[in-house]
Lab assay of single mutants.
Amino acid sequence: SEEKKKAKERLERLGASSELARELLDRANGNAEKAERLLRKLL
């Protein structure tokens, strides 16, 4: 979806690899905010 694509791009801008961004979104069930929080914990 367009929303998921935007979320993935945002995670990548924050420093996630394409693969990591995809994994985070999967774990967050597509929830962009939750995926971002997970990423911030990792960085």
Rank of each mutant, 00 (worst) to 15 (best):
S1A: 13
S1V: 11
S1Q: 12
E2L: 13
E2H: 10
E3Y: 13
E3M: 10
K4C: 13
K4Q: 14
K4G: 13
K4V: 14
K4W: 15
K5W: 09
K5M: 11
K6V: 09
K6C: 10
A7W: 10
A7G: 07
A7L: 10
A7H: 07
A7N: 07
A7P: 04
A7R: 05
K8D: 03
K8H: 14
K8L: 15
E9R: 10
E9N: 08
E9Q: 13
E9H: 08
E9A: 12
E9C: 13
E9P: 04
R10M: 08
L11T: 00
L11I: 03
L11P: 00
E12S: 05
E12R: 11
E12Y: 06
R13D: 06
R13F: 11
R13I: 07
G15P: 01
G15K: 02
A16M: 03
A16C: 09
S17H: 04
S17R: 03
S17E: 02
S18M: 07
S18N: 06
S18D: 08
E19I: 07
E19M: 08
E19R: 11
E19C: 15
L20I: 05
L20D: 01
L20E: 04
A21I: 07
A21G: 01
A21T: 03
R22M: 14
R22E: 15
E23A: 14
E23R: 14
E23Y: 15
E23K: 13
E23Q: 14
E23F: 13
L24V: 04
L24R: 00
L25N: 00
L25C: 07
L25P: 00
D26C: 14
D26Y: 13
R27G: 03
R27S: 06
R27Q: 11
A28H: 04
A28I: 02
A28L: 06
A28V: 10
A28S: 09
N29Y: 07
N29F: 09
G30F: 07
G30D: 05
G30W: 14
N31A: 04
N31H: 06
N31R: 03
N31P: 00
N31V: 06
N31S: 07
N31E: 05
A32H: 05
A32M: 13
E33W: 13
E33K: 13
E33M: 12
K34C: 14
K34Y: 15
K34V: 15
K34H: 13
A35R: 01
A35T: 01
A35Y: 02
E36V: 13
E36F: 08
E36R: 07
E36A: 09
E36P: 00
E36I: 15
R37F: 10
R37T: 08
R37E: 15
L39V: 00
R40T: 06
R40H: 09
K41V: 09
K41Q: 14
K41P: 00
K41L: 14
K41D: 09
L42C: 10
L42W: 11
L42E: 03
L42Y: 11
L43C: 12
L43F: 10
L43H: 05
